[in-house]
Design a protein around this nucleic acid. Structure first.
Lengths: 239, 239
DNA sequence: AGGTATAGTTTTGTAGGACATAAGGAACAT
DNA sequence: ATGTTCCTTATGTCCTACAAAACTATACCT
């Protein structure tokens, strides 16, 4: 085995072993489904205790890089790119600054996928979006309102056909709910824009026409409350 | 302590403990810098072995959610949102399909941050971009070419001032290098577009004018080889 | 009394043993 | 050839032990 090739200067043994195992996978050109050596073998080859190897493997398991079948062995798997996000994108673990970064990120992507959406959208997709909009009669209840938002936008993401984008955007959406519920200073700016914003049915107009420019401008305005809030909060932070 | 509140039905004990610790952090309203109970206490309260707790904590440590100071104790930290990505976005661990998704994702973002860039860009930023372009005399060597690409675009990302976007985009960039080097079918389409593409100096024209629409169209064309390649590969995959 | 040296306690990092359990294969019997 | 039994192997879990470092408390000396 080709361990110990690269001298890793991480802090703990576990960090080093984690990296060595990753290097081993690449060096040995392991591919999807390849067997990973058993824990004891790894431990002996790396001259560490089995605990250390298990901790390192546990991390890789969490990332989806390896999968262990009980009593059988471990195999290399393709990691779920966005899975690790779901644990980290948790409003209770993040600072307001980071949350704002993510809101901003989402708004940018939402605008950036305009081409993809208009390129890929089918008549059936438009019908489904229309059905979603019909079902969402106007309501005051914030929770239902946010759920409606999520349903509509999730459908938009699925039109891109890009799983990374779908997963990422869907993971960020709950943050918007959190902001609506918990950030007091958001409420005033939200109130101010009430009624002035582009609505879902307005977006549909441009999608029906396959009008990229119109759609991009519309989606930008649909999310304008957040852009304004982000800018305002950042400026306040600077003072 | 408020453990065992939620009955988690994951597979292994470690998975359950990981989730329980996260719940504990939220339930106890721990904030940045708060002490996490020592491993043995957690193990006793959760009725599991210390190994299991350590494995779960090891995962959280990797995500940056907790930090352990040797011989002292563990504290809650704010996770680095994009850090977990760096381990997963590894071309040797991903399928071609996933790599294409990520290329696509990056191109969309690159277009989507046009507003942010034009809004935030300063004269100093433009000067730096000009310096970068000047330094990058035309060259055939693919490796240097990609390095130049990375330098220029990294600067663009930094103009957004959004750390999540900066980190994400910079992590995806090496994939483009990988595609250039390893995907044979990319070379033909790359060759075909040679000389026809929008160059960095062309982008600068629109940035100087603070012309969002012009810039967006230009950056879209600058990356057009990738869009075409993605579409072509996807269509081949369908057959 | 006050400051310092020393010993004890706590806590993480690491090693290693033990066992249950289940999958897989080998040997054996029919 | 087929079915049964048993052994090996591998992961999941628990336990003990100890080094090292940091903090605490005590005791000691002046």
């Amino acid at each position: 085995m080709e361990f110990d090739k690269i001298a890793v200067k991480s802090i703990t043994l576990v960090d080093q072993v984690e990296e060595k195992i990753l290097n081993y996978i690449v060096d040995q050109k392991l591919t999807l489904g390849s067997d990973i050596p058993p824990e004891l073998t790894l431990a002996e080859n790396l001259n560490v205790g089995r605990n250390v190897v298990r901790e390192a493997l546990s991390r890789l398991r969490m990332l989806g890089i390896v999968e262990s079948r009980k009593h059988k062995g471990m195999v290399l798997r393709e990691p779920d790119i966005m899975k690790c996000f779901s644990k980290v994108i948790n409003p209770y673990l993040l600072s307001k600054h980071s949350i704002l970064d993510l809101l901003d990120f989402r708004v940018s992507i939402e605008s950036g996928i305009s081409e993809l959406i208009v390129d890929n959208i089918t008549d059936e997709d438009i019908k489904e979006l229309e059905r979603i909009v019909e079902r969402h009669v106007y309501q005051e209840d914030m929770k239902l309102k946010v759920e409606n938002e999520i349903e509509f936008h999730s459908k938009l993401y699925r039109i891109t056909g890009n799983q990374a984008i779908i997963d990422f955007q869907e993971m960020v959406l709950p943050l918007f709910n959190y902001v609506n519920m918990n950030f007091e200073d958001f409420k005033s700016i939200n109130e101010k824009n009430k009624g002035k914003l582009v609505k879902h049915e307005d977006l549909l107009i441009y999608l029906r026409k396959r009008d990229v420019k119109g759609y991009r401008k519309a989606i930008y305005n649909h999310l304008k409350t957040y852009s304004e809030y982000i800018r305002q909060s950042r400026n306040m932070g600077k003072q």
